[in-house]
Every structure is written in C-alpha cells, then in structure tokens.
C-alpha cells in the first residue's frame, strides 16, 4: 500500500482537534489502544481523574504499563456499561444496615459482568481496579472473589484458586493447636 504523504500532517491536525475531545485513549502493557469516555474515567478511577486533571493524558494513548490488554478491555467495558446504567434504588438504599455496610451489593449487571470472567481475567481485573483506584470496580470484583470462598474448607479454596499448600505437617499441627479451643471438630 502506498504511503500517503499528507497523512502525517492530517494526523497532526487531528491531534490538535482532539485535544478537547471527550474521550481518553489508554494504552495497555502490550500496546493495544482503548478509548473511554473522559467523564466516566474521571468519575470511576481516582488515578485517571488525577491524570486528566494534571494534564498527563497522552492523546496517542496513555501508557498503563501495569495493565494487560484483556484487563484494560474489561476496565473500559466496565466504564462504558457503568456510564449507561442508572443506579437502582436498591443500590442507593443498601449498605444502611450493619450487614452490608460498608460495602454496597453489586447490581445485577455488575454481577453478570464479573460472572462471565475466567479466573485469570478476574485476577487481572481486580489488580487493575486496585491500580487505577477504581473503588466501585474493586468492590464488585472483590465481592465476586469472596463469594467463591464462602463456606468452603481450606482444601476447597486451594482447589478453586489453584494454591499450593505450603504448610508443613508440623505447621498445620501448630495452627490446629493454636485454634483448637475454637473448634469442636478438629
């Protein structure tokens, strides 16, 4: 394909024109570009809000070296979905009671959003949410992970998360002794 000589200039003009645009471009660790509404990014992520306010947003793609493209895609997806959703009455009124405070229950769409994720994607997303200071997304992802642990035995949890049991027999015995008075079954 022939290179259009005027393309470079056109590119420059475009960039200037886009200086005031209402989206920001984010670049994943593996170099993929994602666009997200500036308003949603600033509202949902304290880190992005700080970058936008501080003018450190790069129109060619703000480098987010810690976040892979899959996770960033999910982050952007979440931001877009969030922008389109109207907070339900349940979300506003929840967390008053002791049980749910200080965490708000995920909304139906948020639940579905994390339910479709693979284990690894969930891991990446929770790390990305933490890195970007996205309180709500961190809330939703952590809620999902805690759901996966609820009521399970240590063995079952290791199975679910593929964690190696790094305790020696002696250490396990020690823990058992330490908490022996708290259990009847041990």
């Amino acid at each position: 394909m022939e290179v259009d000589k005027g393309k470079g200039e056109a590119e420059e003009t475009r960039k200037v024109a886009e200086a005031d645009r209402d989206t920001v471009t984010l670049k994943s660790s593996d170099g993929k570009l994602f666009e997200v509404s500036k308003e949603a990014a600033a509202r949902l992520s304290t880190v992005l809000a700080g970058m936008i306010a501080g003018g450190s947003i790069d129109d060619n793609g703000t480098d987010l070296k810690q976040i892979g493209s899959e996770a960033l895609e999910n982050v952007v997806d979440y931001c877009n979905k969030h922008a389109n959703s109207i907070p339900s009455a349940a979300l506003i009124s929840s967390s008053i009671s002791f049980n749910t405070a200080p965490f708000k229950e995920p909304e139906e769409w948020e639940r579905k959003f994390v339910d479709r994720l693979s284990h690894d994607a969930l891991f990446d997303l929770v790390e990305a949410a933490n890195f970007l200071g996205m309180e709500r997304l961190l809330d939703v992802t952590c809620h999902k992970i805690s759901e996966m642990m609820k009521g399970k035995s240590p063995d079952q949890i290791r199975e679910v998360f593929n964690i190696k049991n790094d305790y020696t027999k002696e250490e396990l015995e020690e823990i058992r002794q330490e908490l022996a008075w708290a259990f009847y079954d041990d």
Partner: peptide, 12 residues
Amino acid sequence: IDVLMAADRVCH
C-alpha cells in the same frame, strides 16, 4: 467465620 476457619489455613 470463613476467615478464621478457612482463609486462615490456605497458605502462609
């Protein structure tokens, strides 16, 4: 209860 009975014993 889950923290004490399970998460506590998963790994170091």
